[in-house]
Amino acid sequence: MKKRYAMAVDTVRCVGCSACVISCKTENALPDGGFRDWIVQEVRGAFPDLSMEIRSERCNHCSEPSCVDACPTGASHVAEGGVVAVARNKCTGCKACIAACPYGARYVHPAGFVDKCTFCLHRVQKGKQPACVETCPTRSLTFGDLEDPDSPVARLLRSRRSRVLQPEAGNKPNVFFLS
């Protein structure tokens, strides 16, 4: 059956330690200043009535990726399991995909091509978890195949309340935030 990789980010468990960011940088040998994932802290209210949500964010690997539609050379494409990927040998660095992404998930690598999260497909294909998921000390991140009803991510999303970022963009993201 066709796979649909997805991630659930538990905003209740996440403490914003940035271990996912560091492990991603290490695993993928990212350049100085380049990030494929990042931490967002959203504080609601005014002191002393405050609440905070911490999110580990990355490319949403959308089911309807506007970046792939905007790419003129086919460098941005949908790879195995619905992962949105960039073929470096086809990328001209025109930045249309960056302009088309509602999430700011892409950046220009110093070597010229556009870089982004791959859900660590190179690890997933070997049966391992993405680096950020494996590292997360609070186990906030759950990765898996949504088409498999028994996968941990599918079960989490059935039982917990979840939302996606900017659903109004219409891209149908595959990174879900549990609350």
Partner: peptide, 26 residues
């Protein structure tokens, strides 16, 4: 000059992506 990977400029002419206006334009 805007392309950040200028060596790959020729890639515009190895593809036609109908969803991408930039491809139409090229």
């Amino acid at each position: 000059l805007d392309l950040s990977f200028k060596l790959h400029a020729w890639r515009f002419y190895l593809a036609f992506r109908w969803t991408s206006p930039m491809s139409w334009g090229a």
